[in-house]
Write a protein that binds this DNA or RNA. Structure first.
Length: 860
RNA sequence: GCCCGGGUGGCGGAAUUGGUAGACGCACGGGACUCAAAAUCCCGCGCUGGCAACAGCGUGCCGGUUCGAUUCCGGCCCCGGGCACCA
């Protein structure tokens, strides 16, 4: 008889049970090894999206699996509650950001609870609450006193119409998203954290993170970007002083034909003083967003300053250009340009008719005769994504002796490893390393340069000119300067009952907020009205969960739980959030709060949930609301489907089809258990039971215990939840084919069903709890633990060999495991599927035997 | 532009250390049950040829290494993520 699968009732009962029994409340008082499982906390945007479901299900599976394996598990949850969307929603809905945020938290908390997460809700935090941000304000003041936070000017996107600073996201095609005005770059004073002081440690400690994906470590290494190069000074012609550049390719110095500076560079400003055209050009460069992607993809433009500098080695006079492709924030904000050996320089030189001078040739060309001016441009056609034909210009060098040409593609990639100096005077014939050393040493002698290690990493600007964020705890006093707010006067509370009018931050206009007295002299003073970057809050929350109610930033409990054993979150956080969190961990260590060097031992970076080929996001309007899924099919179906659809690290292209399949499987499972228990209670077959099993039941038990082993490996080591599920599905398909109702069959069936409930319970905990209760009326699945593998059930004495001829599959044979290689080779040669390929004039050249797998007969 | 990933049937994906390509599921087709539909159950399902046995082709494209390549190497194409103020 067909049974209903009453998922609503099952899920409500299970969730109520967990809540009443405080099943997932974590305690530091435990004999078991601790396991801190953390999923990146959500921004309370309003409703759960599929990315959340995926993220929190992965974390929950790992938490529940470790719980079953006997760990003392802590899985907390909270809210990354400050941020830009609250301000936009507040303006749109005529409400206060705080009210909007708190309502969203309430709603999303209900939704998360419906997912049945094994979360300790007692530890819930919201970063917008004073009891949370008080402690980061305290840390700010400590770091300020230590000089790790300082003030300097930096560039922001300025909307001249709205008169506000814009986030990069708010600049669309160089214009403000509300006003449509052309955005300008503007320099304003801001607070910075000296993350560069930790660059070396942040780089080196990546080597300790064996539990992190290689991909993420590579991205962080490249982001920190340690390079070994040289600073080179070009004396300015006709005035004192010199122009300093940084280069990672000192070996190409003899090929430098001009020098380029960023529009923001002091020399550009100086040259523009009596040059209207240059002033205009610099102004033009300062239009558009500050985002590096925009700067780097902009059309290369430049203008000569009229200034000349002297090449430090050959004495040539080189022109100084202002170029929009030079980044003001990297190195010296100025570069030596070697058009022959740098693609961007080449493009620029071509456009403005500047000299191109090769200084490196391929190693195997060193005897060739090449004139310096033999470099020429070759235009090639290539297909753009829009399918229109485009032209690409690449430099080509011709070897007169052989008429051989070489294109830029070779030069750019391989030059440093396989090139030798050419046309470079005394450095001719030297390779990258010796040329760099010689040149650095000669520059040093002339006092015009030296070797230098450079990081790409910049200090972290943390000031935001926005309202909905943590107030920066600084008081500005005319007498005492910048005064950090003393600990006993913290927190500086952000007023929550405000009106957002869309023009500027309410606290910047609120004397009740900014008027204060100086903590040092007691005189009239004003508060800082900028707030902190929201990455500040998310950089230390992992420590707060561990000591969520401590009367300090974190207490000894943090040292019990930290480091986080498993961190789970989106790959889009691979650099910024994860780097800042690692940085904060080290800061907190250095102020004596915690002991560990790194916050996250193991990291699982979940792929994005995509819809129609791009990231699901509110701004793109392609989100799928999981609520309908939960309402119509239940949380277990939503969890099962999400875990089954793709491996966690891959991006998941969302499609609704398949949800039915997941639900159908749960219904079949429910039915199978119902049919079984209908026949009365029975004890599971035990490993040491004396009955002789039929061949069919032996095979079933073999599959069961192989499945237990595989699923444990898939959960614990591989994080391959989709294959774990598919192997349990195979198990259930096999069970369905076994029909007997005799006692032994029923014992084995009980064994299979009990174990299936255990294996699936991390993924679909509600139904498994109910199934267990049906199978074992007086016990709870929560006490059962992870099942043991019966090794004896997995012993096999025959094995199937695949038979190949010349690497192509031609057949197979099942043989006893004890056969010798000689016998196997004889058998395979006599097999008809091999025989027919051994025709006249052909001989068996060799036989390759892969034990227990495959035999390949090579015939020729 | 720079850095990091990915590309396998109609679709999501599997193949864990170079050794059976397409597990499992979806969709689809056929059948059973039903007055009928839904649900459920059974069978089929990479492409081409063939009644079939079987044969050939096939993991984005081009080339290489190997007895054997989705897997390793070289070159390309396309798609996604990040680029410091979205979180």
């Amino acid at each position: 008889m067909q049974q209903q699968y009453p998922f609503k009732e099952i899920e409500q009962n299970a969730q109520a049970f967990w809540e009443q029994n405080q099943t997932f409340a974590a305690s530091e008082k435990s004999e078991k090894p601790k396991y801190y499982c953390l999923s990146m906390f959500p921004y309370p945007s309003g409703r759960l999206h599929m990315g959340h479901v995926r993220n929190y299900t992965i974390g929950d599976v790992l938490s529940r699996f470790h719980h079953m394996k006997g760990f003392n598990v802590m899985q907390p949850m909270g809210w990354d509650a400050f941020g830009l969307p609250a301000e936009n929603a507040a303006i749109k809905n005529n409400t206060a950001p705080a009210k909007w945020t708190y309502e969203n938290i309430e709603h999303m908390k209900t939704q998360l609870k419906q997912l049945g997460l094994a979360v300790d809700w007692n530890r819930e935090i919201a970063t917008c609450k004073p009891e949370y941000y008080k402690w980061e304000q305290w840390l700010f003041t400590e770091l300020f006193k230590k000089g790790l936070i300082y003030k300097k000017t930096s560039t922001v996107n300025w909307d001249p119409v709205d008169g506000t600073v814009l986030a990069n996201e708010q600049v669309i095609d160089g214009r403000g998203w509300r006003s449509g005005a052309l955005v300008e770059k503007r320099d304003i004073p801001q607070y910075f954290m000296k993350i560069t002081a930790y660059a070396e440690e942040l780089l080196n400690d990546l080597d300790k993170l064996d539990g992190w994906p290689e991909q993420v470590k590579t991205m962080q290494r490249n982001w920190i970007g340690k390079s070994f190069g040289c600073e080179v000074e070009f004396p300015i012609v006709g005035q004192s002083g010199s122009l300093k550049v940084y280069t990672t390719r000192p070996d190409t110095l003899m090929g430098a034909t001009y020098v380029a500076v960023a529009a923001e560079h002091a020399l550009a400003t100086q040259a523009a003083q009596n040059n209207a055209a240059l002033t205009d050009f610099i102004a033009e460069c300062k239009r558009g967003s500050v985002a590096e992607a925009d700067v780097a993809t902009a059309e290369k433009k430049g203008m000569a300053t009229g200034l000349l500098v002297t090449h430090p080695l050959n004495g040539e006079q080189l022109p100084v250009w202002v170029a929009n492709y030079v980044l003001a924030s990297y190195g010296e904000g100025a570069v030596m340009a070697v058009p022959a050996h740098d693609e961007r320089d080449f493009e620029f030189a071509n456009k403005y008719g500047l000299k191109i001078k090769p200084a490196i040739i391929p190693e195997n060309w060193k005897e060739a005769k090449i004139e310096p001016d033999l470099i020429s441009a070759r235009s090639s056609e290539y297909k753009d994504k829009t399918k229109e034909i485009n032209h690409k210009i690449s430099p080509v060098l011709t070897n007169k002796d052989t008429n051989q040409t070489i294109s830029w593609d070779f030069w750019s990639e391989k030059l440093a490893q396989h090139g030798l100096c050419y046309n470079s005077g005394k450095y001719n014939g030297l390779d990258f390393e010796s040329a760099s050393n010689e040149i650095a040493s000669d520059l040093s002698t002339k006092n015009l340069g030296k070797k230098r290690t450079q990081y790409r990493l910049r200090d972290w600007g943390i000031s935001r000119q926005r309202y909905w964020g943590c107030p920066i705890p600084i008081v500005h006093c005319a007498n005492c300067g910048e005064v950090p707010v003393p600990a006993d006067q913290l927190p500086v509370i952000l007023p929550e009952n405000v009106v957002m009018d869309g023009v500027g931050s309410p606290i910047k206009k609120d004397p009740n907020f900014y008027e204060t007295t100086c903590p040092t002299c007691g005189g009239k003073a004003t508060r800082e009205t900028d707030t902190l970057d929201t990455f500040f809050e998310s950089s230390w929350y992992f420590a707060r969960y561990a000591s969520f109610d401590a009367d300090k930033m974190c207490d000894e409990r943090a040292n019990y739980w930290l480091p986080v054993d498993q961190y789970v979150g989106g790959i889009e956080h691979a650099i910024l959030h994860l780097l800042y969190a690692r940085f904060f961990n080290k800061l907190m260590r250095d102020v004596g709060l915690i002991k560990n060097d790194e916050p996250f031992t193991n990291l699982l970076t979940q792929g994005m949930v995509l819809k129609d080929g791009s990231k699901m996001s509110k701004s793109k309007g392609n989100t799928v609301d999981p609520q309908a899924l939960i309402d119509n099919y239940g949380a277990d179906t939503a969890r099962l489907f999400t875990m089954f659809a793709a491996p966690p690290e891959q991006s998941l292209e969302w499609a609704d089809s398949g949800v039915q399949g997941a639900h159908r499987f749960l219904r079949r499972l429910w039915q199978a258990v119902y049919d079984h228990v209908q026949l009365g209670e029975i004890a599971a077959y035990q490993a040491n039971d004396p009955q002789t099993l039929s061949a069919e039941l032996k095979v079933l038990r073999l599959q069961l215990h192989s499945t237990i082993e595989k699923v444990a490996d898939d959960y614990g080591r591989r994080h391959s939840f989709n294959t774990a599920i598919s192997s349990v599905m195979e198990m259930m398909n096999a069970l369905a084919k076994v029909e007997g109702t005799d006692e032994t069959t029923r014992q084995v069936r009980q064994e299979v069903l009990q174990n299936v409930a255990l294996l699936l319970s991390p993924i679909v905990p509600h139904i498994c709890q109910a199934l267990w209760a049906a199978l074992q009326p007086n016990s709870s699945i929560l006490d059962a633990g992870w099942p043991a593998v019966d090794e004896a059930a997995m012993v096999q004495n025959s094995v199937e060999y695949m038979i190949q001829v010349n690497g192509k599959l031609r057949g197979s044979m099942t043989v006893s495991k004890s056969e010798t290689n000689e016998t196997l080779e004889k058998m395979v040669l006599n097999d008809p599927c091999v025989q027919k390929f051994i025709v006249e004039n052909s001989t068996v050249r060799k036989i390759i035997l892969v034990p227990n797998k495959l035999i390949n007969v090579v015939v020729g």
